[in-house]
Amino acid sequence: MDGDNEPCSELGTKEYWDKTYQLEINNFQSHGDVGEEWFGEDSAMRVVKWLNAYEKVTKGSKIIDIGCGNGMLLSLMAEEEYENLLGVDYSQHAINLASSVANKMALNISFKVWDILSAESCPGDVPFDVALDKGTYDAIGLSSNGAEDRKTYITKVHSILTPDGILVLTSCNYTEDELESQFSERFTKLSRIPAPTFKFGGREGSLISSLILRKIN
């Protein structure tokens, strides 16, 4: 995918996600189902494992999950004793679900409604040491104004990070090379998180790309 001429999709609309998370709230309230973990729990665990091993991230580092959805990635981090966690999402229904799940699990995580593409200031204690994204950048790219919205996203993430801050970005819409190119003006690739690979037609590849991007000052 070249990243500039992507078809728009309902996955790029707030209406779709409001409807999705309203259904998941109903499911959680009726039988405790927390909903789908974007890219699967294994992907989330790989992110947590990488952060655990990165010496510049501590249990007290300020961490924001952009487009947190049901909050399960932050729940995994809270269980690993990370103390300063904020999840933001533009869907109030997502925040309601994430807060309910965290409360039931007795986890200390803050959740706030915030659209990163809006002119509103980030509701958390800026700047952050780490920003997490599992699928939000993908969804933004599928909006009706995807190319420009992706540029706004990159600028906003850059603005809320500390000078040595990192973005942990997981995507299924873009390759590692595409992500590195799209973020190159404001971020440099620090590392990657290997994902399971498959072979087809004599070629090997992965269904998702997961990069660690460090802020350029």
Rank of each mutant, 00 (worst) to 15 (best):
H31L: 07
S143Y: 04
P196A: 12
I116M: 03
N84K: 13
M45A: 12
L76Y: 09
E204W: 03
D18Y: 05
E24I: 05
R192P: 07
Y21K: 00
S30T: 14
S75C: 15
M45Q: 14
C68I: 02
S206R: 10
V126E: 04
N96P: 00
V88S: 06
C8I: 10
E80N: 13
I109D: 00
T188F: 15
S118N: 07
L86D: 01
G87I: 09
K151R: 13
E37Y: 13
S159V: 11
S210W: 05
D125M: 09
S61W: 02
E180G: 04
E185S: 15
I140L: 06
L169V: 10
L107N: 00
T188A: 15
T188E: 15
N173E: 08
T20N: 04
R186I: 08
G124I: 01
S9N: 13
R186T: 14
I66Q: 06
F200W: 11
G205F: 10
S121T: 12
P163M: 03
A102R: 04
G35W: 00
Q92L: 14
D125S: 12
I216Q: 15
T13L: 10
Y54T: 11
E120Q: 11
L161T: 03
L86E: 11
K49I: 05
S110K: 12
E180T: 15
L86P: 00
E24A: 09
A94P: 08
D65S: 06
V48W: 00
S110I: 06
E185K: 15
I109R: 02
L74G: 01
F198I: 14
I208M: 12
Y16N: 06
D149T: 11
K215Q: 00
K14L: 14
V130L: 06
S206V: 09
G71W: 00
K151E: 15
E178C: 11
W50K: 15
C68D: 02
T162F: 01
T175I: 06
T13C: 02
V47K: 00
I166W: 01
C172Y: 03
